[in-house]
C-alpha cells in the first residue's frame, strides 16, 4: 500500500517556540524602552531605531543573497540586533554613522563568522564599541531629555567621572545639567544617555515579559545587576546610582542574555553575570571611560566558551570524578 506517509525520527511533535518567535518576543520586550526613548528624546529616537533596524535587515539580506546562502532575515535576529544597536546610540547620532554601526554588527561580527549562532561576540555591542572608538565626539554628545533644541549634556556617569577627575563643573555648559539627577528621574529615564538605556522602568517591564515568556532566565540579569550593586557599594560608590545609571539594565537584561554569546548553563550564566558586573564597576570607577557595560559584556562574550567548558553538567549516573 502506498500512502505517501511521512517517515521521520521521533519525536513527532514539537514545541511551538521557534527562533523567530523568540526574536519576536525580544522585540516586543524592547518596545516599552522604545516608547520611553521617544518620550524623552523625541521622534529622532524613533528615526534612529528605524534606520538601524532597516539597515541591519538590509545588510543581512544583501550578504545572504550575494553569498548564495539561505535567506535568514525571517528569523528576525537582524532586526533585534539593529534595535539593540540603536538603543546603544545617542539619539543625535548622524544616521550614516548608525548605518556603519549596522554594517559592523551584521556583516563583520555576525555573517563573516557564519551567521546566526556562530558569532563569538554580541553584534550590537561590537557595533557600538566600533562607533564609540571611531566617532568619539558624536557618540558621547548626549541630548538632554525633553529639550526641543538639541541641547546636549553629559550622562550622570559622565558627571561623576568629571567630578572624580576634578574638572571644574562651572566651566562647562549650564550648571543645571551638571547636577546629578534624582533617583526617580533615573528610574524613569529622564537623563542623558543612549536612547534606549535610560528608562529603567521600561527595561524592567521588558525583563518581566521575557521571564514570563520563558525566553530568558533570571540568573544572568540578577547576577549582573546584583554584582554592580554590591561591588560599587563595597568600593564606596552609590550602589543605587550605579545600577540605574548607564547601560547596566539594558546590558544585563538584553545583551547579557543573548543566547549565542553567553553560556548555556545556569551556572555559566551566573558566572557570566558576576564577571560582567565586576568588570563594569572596575571600568567605571578606575578606567578612563565613564561607562564600562559594553566592554564588560564583550570581554565576557570572549571568555564564554571557557565558562561553558568549566560548567559542563555531570550526566545522571555518569562515572564519578571526571567532568562531564
Amino acid at each position: 500500500m502506498t500512502q505517501n506517509l511521512v517517515i521521520t525520527s521521533s519525536p513527532h511533535i514539537r514545541a511551538k517556540d521557534t527562533t523567530r518567535s523568540i526574536m519576536l518576543d525580544v522585540l516586543i520586550a524592547l518596545c516599552p524602552a522604545l516608547i520611553a526613548s521617544v518620550i524623552w528624546f523625541g521622534p529622532r529616537a524613533l528615526l534612529v531605531s528605524a534606520v538601524c533596524v532597516g539597515a541591519s535587515v538590509l545588510f543581512e539580506y544583501l550578504y545572504r543573497k550575494l553569498m548564495h546562502l539561505d535567506m535568514t532575515i525571517g528569523d528576525l535576529s537582524a532586526a533585534v540586533t539593529g534595535l539593540l544597536l540603536a538603543f546603544n546610540l545617542p539619539s543625535s547620532i548622524p544616521l550614516w554613522m548608525a548605518v556603519i554601526g549596522c554594517f559592523v554588527s551584521i556583516v563583520i561580527v555576525k555573517q563573516l563568522f557564519g551567521g546566526l549562532g556562530k558569532n563569538f561576540a554580541n553584534p550590537a555591542i561590537v557595533g557600538r564599541i566600533v562607533l564609540l572608538v571611531s566617532f568619539a565626539t558624536p557618540m558621547t554628545n548626549w541630548p538632554v531629555p525633553l529639550s526641543a533644541d538639541a541641547v546636549t549634556g553629559p550622562t550622570p556617569l559622565g558627571v561623576v567621572g568629571a567630578m572624580a577627575a576634578g574638572v571644574d563643573a562651572s566651566s562647562s555648559a549650564t550648571a543645571e545639567v551638571i547636577a546629578l539627577p534624582s533617583y526617580l528621574d533615573m528610574f524613569l529615564g529622564k537623563i542623558g544617555g543612549s536612547l534606549g538605556e535610560t528608562c529603567t522602568l521600561a527595561l524592567l517591564i521588558g525583563f518581566v515579559y521575557l521571564v514570563a515568556r520563558k525566553v530568558i532566565t533570571v540568573t544572568e540579569p540578577l547576577a549582573f545587576i546584583g554584582t554592580v550593586f554590591v561591588l560599587s557599594w563595597l568600593l564606596g560608590a552609590d550602589p543605587v546610582f550605579h545600577i540605574l545609571a548607564g547601560g547596566v539594565m539594558l546590558g544585563a537584561i538584553f545583551m547579557g542574555t543573548d543566547y549565542v554569546t553567553t553560556p548555556t548553563t545556569e551556572l555559566g550564566r551566573l558566572i557570566f553575570g558576576i564577571g560582567a558586573g565586576v568588570l563594569t564597576v572596575i571600568i567605571r570607577l578606575y578606567g578612563s571611560y565613564p561607562e564600562g557595560v559594553s566592554f564588560a559584556i564583550l570581554i565576557m562574550n570572549i571568555v564564554t566558551p571557557h565558562i561553558d567548558n568549566l560548567t559542563r553538567i555531570k550526566a545522571l549516573g555518569a562515572e564519578g570524578g571526571k567532568k562531564a
Binding site: T18, T19, I22, T72, D75, S77, G115, L116, G117, K118, Y259, V260, P263, T264, T265, E266, I313, K314, A315, L316, G317
Partner: peptide, 17 residues
Amino acid sequence: TPCIRCGRCVRSCPVKL
C-alpha cells in the same frame, strides 16, 4: 535552522546531558 545556543535542550534533558 541554525542552533542559537539557547540551552533549552540542556535544561530539558532528564538525564542531564
